[in-house]
Simulated assay, not measured.
Amino acid sequence: MKEFQRAMNVNLKGVMHGIKHAGRVMIPNQKGCIISTSSIAGIFGGTASYSYTASKHAVIGLTKQGAAEMGKYGIRVNCVSPSGLATVLAFQYFGMNTTNVEEKKVECEEFCNKISKLKNHTLKAHDIAEAALYLASEEAKFVSGHNLVVDGGFTVVNHDRGLY
């Protein structure tokens, strides 16, 4: 329960406060864009702990509710859901030693590439930033309540079947 409460405090309450306080600033201007981060763990189970999975599912729900409530003020609310990304947090999750970050980054990227369905590409933090930039741009001016999945096709495959 301690892990669950921590995940909810950081991943869910943090997003809720972000939406709430950004909305307070944006409502008087009658425009704005709020982007949160969920995860592929927020789409289906089996990729992370109960706590993390529940919190990321809830972030997608908050995104949709935020979009529903803030649309009347011209505010768009969306989220980005990345798959595995070589970060220190990922190293810790996979039980990797974090003393040699560059070495572990390569190891983590190799693992993520192995399970990715989009070959010859490696997900980088820059790719997530580009997805968020799109959601914040004029090109996405009519996109709200959306969960932009950046996972190289991982979530479109039933991995239990082993067909692809």
Rank of each mutant, 00 (worst) to 15 (best):
M1D: 14
Q5S: 07
M8R: 08
M8C: 04
I19Y: 03
R24K: 13
P28T: 02
K31M: 07
K31Q: 10
C33T: 13
C33P: 02
I35F: 09
I35K: 05
G42V: 03
I43T: 12
I43L: 15
F44T: 15
T47P: 15
A48H: 15
A48F: 07
S49M: 09
Y52F: 11
S55T: 04
K56M: 03
H57F: 15
H57P: 11
A58M: 11
T63Y: 03
G66C: 05
A67S: 12
E69G: 15
G71F: 09
K72S: 07
I75F: 13
V80I: 07
V80L: 08
S81G: 03
S83V: 11
L85T: 13
L89D: 15
L89E: 10
A90Y: 04
F94T: 11
F94C: 15
G95L: 14
N97Y: 00
T98F: 08
T99H: 04
N100H: 08
N100I: 01
E103H: 03
K104T: 13
E107D: 14
E110Q: 14
C112Q: 11
N113W: 00
S116P: 08
L123G: 02
K124D: 00
D127L: 07
E130F: 09
A136G: 10
S137F: 02
E138C: 00
E139G: 14
S144I: 03
S144N: 13
N147K: 12
L148F: 05
L148R: 10
G152Q: 00
F154C: 01
T155W: 04
T155I: 05
N158I: 09
Y164N: 15
